[in-house]
Amino acid sequence: MSRAALLVLADGRFPAGGHAHSGGAEAAVGAGRVTGAASLEDFCRGRLHTTGLVAAAVAAAAALGVDPVELDAAADARTPSPALRTAARKLGRQLLRAARVAWPSGELDALAGTFPKGAHQPVVLGVTALAAGLGPADAAYCAAYESVSGPASATVRLLGLDPFDATGVLARLAPEVDEVVTRAVGTAREAVGAGVDALPAASAPLLEVFAQAHAGWAVRLFAT
């Protein structure tokens, strides 16, 4: 197992489209709910333990070989906002494009054949981890970390937040990212035998409500 491959996959510059998404931070900033480092940290913590946990578990399950079609449907059921379902599939498709060049593999080709318009991004992430010689915990780490790093870097652009403060938020959340990954991998292992219903379904009502409002904004910096 290559540790360096994890760095490649988790790199914020990995060209898979993440830069155009704020993970709900733009809408939260617009509503005055995120105004600085402290509220950004609260926002990221909530996202980590809800949609971050779900994404991490789906990614880990995909890396454990759970059927991508079932995982994609499970991700759909856990993503009631159509704007977020569309974004997750777009990002999945973009990740798949980058992953197939970085780690050519039959599994990734098959995934592209099954989902020509994209599967939910965490599903692709898990299969990519496999192709890169990584394991379920690595896939979960990428998903969980991404659930907080996206809003943090977006908030630097949105609020002119001091980038050192934003990075400090991520550093303080690191132990909780570890916890979420442990939970995610545990449920993913359950899902191998018990099916995708065993995966967590933690939801964040404000993220869902704001995602739909944000999708209707005429002027915005980020796609979500």
């Binding site: 709900g24 939260a28 709910r33 995120v34 509220s39 609260d42 926002f43 990221c44 913590r45 909530g46 996202r47 980590l48 333990h49 809800t50 946990l53 909780e176 933690a202 964040a204 009502p205 404000l206 993220l207």
Partner: peptide
């Protein structure tokens, strides 16, 4: 789990 009352989840509502 943390953040349940923060701006991503319930925001004090």
């Amino acid at each position: 789990p943390g953040g349940w009352d923060g701006p991503a989840v319930l925001g004090g509502l």
